[in-house]
Amino acid sequence: MTRKGTALLLCLLAGCGSTGDVNARRDLFLSGLEALDPRAPEPLTIAEVRSFIPTALERVEGGLVLVEQPDADRAEFFSVAGRNGSIVTYGSDSQTTIALDGPVMVATRGFGDDIMSADVDVLPELLAARQGGSYSRVLRYLDGEDRTTSIRLDCNLRPTDPANSNFIEYCGTAELEFRNVYQVDGGRVVLSVQWHGPLNGYLTINHLR
């Protein structure tokens, strides 16, 4: 079939036009088709993405994090996209973002069931000072009706080694609990495992630079 013929067929099947909404619907339709295509290349696994760490460090200037979703065996690099006070937003090629207050995740977008916002109290300061402590946290999500739901948790942070270089953060309510880990090296957190939410579970964040 000629290219024009293919374009017309695509129009008839999925729609096309001069406006963004029509084309967005077509793209949605096509991405749905792609998901069904067994020949589509598998996304890279965590191990494969990790092998690109040296290249990424070379190519990207400034802050760089590697976020891994162990549940899904997916990983992606994020570089600095914006800075607002103490919070830095990192963005990825797939147009997802993760916002970190120091090393602590306070918001995500595009992961699905995103953390809309979070209050993390003194946690970033405690980690910076390499001290344990108790505090409370609030995590906010959107429910199925797009209303904000929040989870308020009581938390404590404590070192797991005498050198104060590994920390476990325990947070719980009567109904749920999670444990995050932070690994400190050279005065900053280099690796953390942080709970994202019910859908995505834990994210492993490599704070590469």
Partner: peptide, 16 residues
């Protein structure tokens, strides 16, 4: 919702 909050692309961060 099958996916609460949706999975569309992230907005651009605010620049202070």
């Amino acid at each position: 919702a099958p996916l609460a909050g949706g999975r569309e692309e992230a907005p651009l961060p605010v620049i202070r």
